[in-house]
Every structure is written in structure tokens, then in C-alpha cells.
């Protein structure tokens, strides 16, 4: 019924809306490109900060940008050897 009504009033999706939505999604991915240099710098700084609180396995550290359809996430896998008791 609702579908029939919306069709009656010409509320079909306009192609420009489709274009905008596709652009929005593709740009989420395009914009989430970290250059290798930046990624290295990020890794170094993370190690620096984390080392204040725990002993981490630097060689086992993995930092990556994971992309799904709608979003981009920074995913880090950081093996911890020992947590410090105080700062």
C-alpha cells in the first residue's frame, strides 16, 4: 500500500540521490588511505605511548585500516608481555 502510494506520487528514488550515496561511500574508502610513512609514524608513536603502561611485543604489533562497506576502522593487534603496576 505504502509502495503503491509513493509510486502514485512519484516518490521513486532520483538518480542524483543514488549518485550522491555512491560517492559518499566511495570517498569513505578513498579518504582513508594512510601513506606508508604516516602508518609507520603512527606505529612508532603508539609503541611510545603504550610502553609507558605495558611491555609490548613490538615485532608482533599490527596496525591496519580495515574497510567494510560503510566504514573504516583502525584495527591494532598488540601482544602484551607484561602490564606495569604503576606509571
Amino acid at each position: 500500500m505504502l509502495e503503491w502510494l509513493s509510486r502514485l506520487f512519484g516518490a521513486t528514488e532520483q538518480s542524483k540521490d543514488k549518485a550522491k550515496e555512491r560517492l559518499r561511500l566511495v570517498l569513505v574508502h578513498d579518504r582513508a588511505v594512510l601513506s606508508p610513512g604516516l602508518l609507520d609514524a603512527l606505529r612508532e608513536e603508539m609503541i611510545h605511548v603504550l610502553s609507558k603502561y605495558m611491555e609490548i611485543d613490538e615485532k608482533g604489533l599490527e596496525v591496519n585500516l580495515n574497510r567494510s562497506d560503510e566504514s573504516v576502522a583502525l584495527v591494532a593487534n598488540i601482544p602484551v608481555r607484561r602490564v606495569k603496576r604503576k606509571l
Binding site: 532520483q14 542524483k16 549518485a19 550522491k20
Partner: peptide, 16 residues
């Protein structure tokens, strides 16, 4: 085409 909704408007593009 903009009027018919078949072309992105200036606002759409600036928004993006």
C-alpha cells in the same frame, strides 16, 4: 536534468 533529479546539484557536490 537537475530539475528532474537526474543530476547532482551544486549543493550536493559542495556538501561532499
Amino acid at each position: 536534468m537537475v530539475r528532474k533529479g537526474d543530476m547532482m546539484t551544486t549543493e550536493d557536490i559542495i556538501d561532499i
